[in-house]
Design a protein around this nucleic acid. Structure first.
Lengths: 109, 109
DNA sequence: AAGCTATTTCTACGATCGTCGAATAAGGTC
DNA sequence: GACCTTATTCGACGATCGTAGAAATAGCTT
């Protein structure tokens, strides 16, 4: 996980509509959710939904699988794990012991 | 933590420059880092830095403390924890691929 | 092939972003 | 008060975003 990837994924999630989409997908579990169902659930125009979905897919946070005319969308848990891991590791999650994590620490000079 | 807040924080982090700023601040630890030092370290114009810093501050990911003419910036670990918690909790409902339980699993790949 | 359904792509447009130099504040020192 | 240092705000700019209706495509079914 590099900083560019992380930023791209964070940016993708950093929009209320997309975060809602992603969250809905997560809640749908392993079965995923067809685009149509998602659209009904969220009540947004399909073109808008498709647009956001595309972004989420681009950064690997969501995957799609075709089932006949229907496209099943699924949250990519592995990617989310990677992102959370990056955040916790590189950007710290703990007040004590975070700065002295890994890498050289402080004191530029 | 509501979805709007989470999205705002994610958006704030979802920019390479800002993510770098935040990460640098995290690495600086509890001592924090003056804006000027940050600027030297990252080599970006101060107006740009200030602009990004403002965003980070707005969403509570960074705090500032005045020390004479210098403004010390610090990463707000509590906020980051909240965000990671939200991500793990709300956006990672699946049990077998999720960092919901703080412990690191995986290894597979 | 015609027709249908599900979904994407096209196109457009206002809104916001990211960048940075110049001007302005905030705080301190002499 | 004059003056320096540190950092923010202002103003401008092209670039990208978010939205959504209309048109196009992918894949059935008959």
């Amino acid at each position: 996980m590099n900083i560019e990837t992380a930023a791209a994924q964070l940016e993708a999630l950093g929009n209320p509509t997309r975060l809602t989409i992603y969250r809905t997908l997560v809640r749908a579990g392993d079965n995923g959710l067809p685009v149509g169902k998602l659209q009904l659930k969220l009540d947004i125009p399909s073109s808008t939904l498709s647009h956001h979905l595309k972004k989420l897919i681009e950064v690997n946070l969501v995957s799609q699988e075709r089932q006949a005319t229907t496209l099943i969308c699924r949250a990519n848990y592995t990617s989310m794990n990677g992102l959370i891991g990056y955040l916790a590791d590189e950007c710290c999650a703990d007040a004590n012991g975070c700065a002295a994590s890994s890498e050289e620490s402080t004191e530029a000079a």
